[in-house]
């Protein structure tokens, strides 16, 4: 049997939103495994196909857009029945950083654990991110970076968020964490996240009620 992620990747490249969503919603695995075993390998495969010149940039953008839609539809089931807690988590991608799917999966895990979540999307300048944080006072700020040359900027974002008066927990993830040891730039409030399981374990420590996504 072909692995589900291959079917999912094919649906993304075909621009078939209905099929992509159906693959996710009909899968019986817990949500975290859907993210890890279907969405993540499919998106990595699409990135590799672009690198090998087997698909165009336009194909890659279409696949990302369909994936974004399917993921949003899939996570909406948790949003609909969520009883929201007081806890708030804000996610964003650094300026010039366009890769949003990874942080959206992390955001979904928070939502399933009843957190109030705001995802501020790709390419957010630090000054705007800080303003938004000061207005909303999130308990957690999740930063995502996939492009290695943004490491310098990532240091600035971490340092700025660590100065916030209410001392939010800062989580840093994305492909760069596998490429360079970021821990030297992180104060005691900041944690480097290497995979979704680590987020789930962290959430479990913080959350008393079981997650909606675990079925």
């Amino acid at each position: 049997m072909t692995e589900a992620w291959r079917h999912f990747a094919a649906a993304l490249l075909a621009g078939d939103e209905r099929q992509a969503y159906t693959i996710l919603i009909e899968d019986t695995r817990p949500s975290i495994r859907v993210y890890k075993e279907i969405i993540t390998p499919a998106m990595y495969d699409i990135g590799e196909k672009w690198l090998r010149n087997e698909i165009t940039v336009a194909d890659e953008h279409l696949a990302t857009s369909v994936c974004d839609f399917a993921l949003a539809q899939y996570t909406f089931q948790f949003k609909q029945r969520n009883r929201q807690s007081e806890k708030k988590a804000m996610f964003l991608c650094l300026e010039d950083e366009q890769h949003v799917i990874g942080s959206k999966m992390i955001a979904a895990l928070f939502e399933e654990n009843h957190w109030q979540v705001r995802h501020l999307g790709p390419n957010l300048p630090l000054s705007d991110a800080l303003k938004s944080a000061e207005q909303w006072h999130p308990d957690v700020i999740g930063l995502s970076a996939a492009i290695p040359y943004r490491i310098t900027a990532l240091k600035e974002y971490i340092a700025a968020f660590e100065q916030l008066s209410w001392e939010p927990q800062i989580l840093v993830g994305g492909r760069v964490v596998a490429m360079h040891d970021l821990r030297a730039y992180c104060g005691r409030q900041t944690r480097v996240i290497y995979d979704l399981d680590e987020v789930a374990a962290w959430l479990e420590e913080k959350t008393e009620a079981p997650a909606d996504g675990v079925r």
């Binding site: 290695p148 040359y149 943004r150 490491i151 310098t152 240091k155 490429m179 360079h180």
Partner: peptide, 21 residues
Amino acid sequence: HHLDYLQSAYDADDSKLFVDY
């Protein structure tokens, strides 16, 4: 791009970033 990656490797004191690039 070459310069961006060189600068990033320099800031991070990690030439591996440029080699991987």
